[in-house]
């Protein structure tokens, strides 16, 4: 181990290499952001269909819940391998994995946030004959919004971390670059990449923390 660390110092800071790492990191970021955005949008209907007393499906809401659990309990690396073999190596497979991962995470917590929303306004609107969808848009979502935003920020943070790892199985981004560096014994390249990843993840946590404290 010490020997390995020794071979990693000093990190490679050639401008050409740094530029490549930079673009790979951007790709990872794109995978995370696009995947989270699509995932969050798709999580909303899943959450609505799963949430107790809010779902239009009645007891059939469990179908939606089970689907969301399935998305969540199958590890993201497994999804990544699946998508890589379906659509080939690259960012598309990575993005699809993040989408599924986000639905597993947000689908569950969005549903809980909807269930926790104040029931009194909902009752007031049901009494005058508002549809379930109107009650969702008019009363449930506004009330759940702070919680939904928080969950979304967590999902984004999680997505950045997992999209790094996904590259290791060929789903695009910086992880793929890291794997190449290790495969070719280019340890000085690897250490640069690890430092970049570390910086980005810490930065990401800092930014989402700041955003979270703004929501109330």
């Amino acid at each position: 181990m010490a020997q390995l660390v020794g071979r990693m110092i000093p990190p490679n800071v050639e401008p050409g290499f740094l530029l490549r790492v930079f673009w790979r990191m951007i790709e990872t970021f794109q995978i995370a952001v696009v995947g989270t955005a699509i995932g969050v949008v798709l999580s909303l209907p899943f959450a609505w269909l799963s949430a107790k007393d809010i779902t239009p499906l009645g007891p059939f809401r469990h179908i939606s819940r089970i689907l969301v659990s399935l998305f969540r309990t199958v590890p993201d690396l497994v999804w990544a391998l699946l998508f890589v073999s379906a659509v080939g190596l690259g960012a598309v497979a990575g993005t699809m994995t993040i989408v599924v991962d986000t639905i597993g995470f947000c689908g569950r917590f969005f549903a809980e946030a909807m269930e926790d929303a104040d029931e009194r306004p909902q009752e007031a609107l049901f009494a005058i004959g508002a549809s379930r969808f109107s009650v969702l848009c008019g009363a449930v979502l506004p009330d759940a919004l702070p919680s939904l935003t928080n969950t979304t920020l967590f999902a984004l943070e999680k997505a950045v971390r997992s999209s790094v790892v996904l590259g290791l199985v060929g789903a695009g981004g910086i992880g793929q670059e890291l794997k190449v560096a290790f495969d070719l014994f280019q340890y000085k390249n690897a250490s640069t990449i690890i430092l970049v990843i570390f910086t980005i993840v810490v930065l990401m946590e800092f930014v989402t923390d700041r955003l979270r404290s703004k929501v109330q």
Binding site: D118, I128, S131, A139, D143
Partner: peptide, 19 residues
């Protein structure tokens, strides 16, 4: 009152049109 707490008063009044 059953108002939606995080919405404006105007929106809450308009929600009387639902249904």
């Amino acid at each position: 009152h059953g108002l939606v707490s995080r919405q404006s008063v105007l929106t809450n009044v308009l929600q009387g049109k639902l249904g």
